[in-house]
């Protein structure tokens, strides 16, 4: 087999930032993950917090930051131990994925359930809900990915394994168990599937990424604990683009790392955020803050990623990184390494 020349340099060009901190409407409240839908739509999962349950939702907007709507809802507490976990509600939502027919899947690591919504946000159904470690049961499910057959892969965090389900939640197979060896996990979090059907897992507490074949065979791993090139401090999420380039949200190192298809380090981004469209509206409504920004030393900190928990790529070579603590998504565009031909 002829091996293509290794892509040693991946150029990511910063594009723009989406978001602002907001409990309703245009904006996010601790966006923990996102998925790209049809028509340039983004489904942004807002974790919010227990004391602002109204902020827990999925905000739908376009990549160009046009607000569309929001759906699902947080659960207001009724009493010290009383909740009303109605269908379609969210407590600790952690991951979102969209199937080929537009169904939106959301994992909830408190309710141990997967909820399904239509692309417009209507509630369809759910699976699981009771914690357990038997086949098909979940214990703090986190990452979600959907393969070419629309099967749903769920990272089963506290069971330290990955499970594969049919689109309506019938158990199919599983990978892994607790440990540090090949094919073993410690509290894994994010997941992605490349266009060959290979599975990539952010093996969170082992500070590494593992790759499996579609039938669950261990293929490779990379990364170790640390803050140097190719090292991780609790990687939260992984995404693979159509060229096989691997992007890792290196959570507590506050950066995005980029790897070639073999897992070789080829760069990092630490953030380039600028004021978003919604952010500008906000500042225009509070004009003295424009002045405060000018006076404040260290405003360049605003560019930096802060604890990114989600990374996604789309078919247009755009890379999205969401940062809960900053209520935003930074968008990059990958420069194509291939010669595109001159204009005619």
């Amino acid at each position: 087999m002829v091996t293509a020349q290794r892509i040693s340099h991946v150029q990511l060009q910063y594009s723009h930032t989406i978001g602002r901190g907001e409990q309703f409407g245009p904006g996010f409240t601790y966006p923990i993950h996102m998925a790209r839908g049809e028509d340039d739509l983004m489904y942004v999962l807002c974790r919010s917090s227990e004391y602002r349950p109204e902020g827990t939702r999925i905000t739908v907007c376009t990549v160009d930051e046009e607000y569309v709507n929001a759906f699902a809802r947080g659960v207001p507490q009724q009493g010290p131990h009383e909740y009303n976990f109605e269908d379609g509600s969210l407590v600790w939502p952690v991951n979102v994925a969209i199937s080929s027919n537009g169904t939106v899947y959301v994992s909830d690591e408190w309710l141990h359930r997967i909820s399904m919504f239509t692309r417009d946000g209507e509630y369809i159904g759910k699976w699981q809900e009771s914690v357990g470690s038997a086949e098909g049961q979940l214990d703090r499910p986190s990452g979600l990915a959907i393969d070419a057959d629309d099967n749903v892969w769920v990272v089963d965090g506290n069971n330290h394994r990955i499970q594969k389900f049919t689109p309506d939640g019938q158990f199919l197979s599983k990978i892994g168990s607790y440990g540090t060896g090949d094919g073993e996990f410690d509290t894994p979090w994010g997941i992605d599937i490349d266009n060959q059907g290979n599975i990539f897992i952010a093996d969170w507490r082992n500070d590494r990424i593992q790759k499996f074949s579609a039938d669950g065979r261990f293929l490779m791993k990379f990364g170790s604990s640390g803050s140097g090139d190719g090292e991780f401090n609790r990687p939260a999420d992984v995404a693979v683009d159509r060229d096989g380039i691997i992007y890792v949200a290196d959570w507590l190192n506050d950066r995005l790392q980029i790897f070639d298809p073999d897992g070789n380090f080829c760069g990092e981004k630490t953030g380039d955020a600028t004021v978003s469209k919604w952010g500008k509206d906000k500042l225009d409504a509070n004009p003295e803050m424009w002045g405060e920004r000018e006076r404040a030393p260290g405003l360049e900190r605003e560019k930096d990623f802060w604890a990114p928990t989600g990374v996604a790529v789309d078919d247009m070579n755009r890379v999205f990184v969401c940062e809960g603590p900053r209520n935003r998504i930074q968008v990059y565009r990958k420069q194509s390494p291939m010669f595109m031909g001159p204009r005619l």
Partner: peptide, 11 residues
């Protein structure tokens, strides 16, 4: 709240 709105609410 602010006299000028922020696009969807007021601060």
């Amino acid at each position: 709240r602010r006299v000028h709105d922020n696009g969807s609410g007021t601060d």
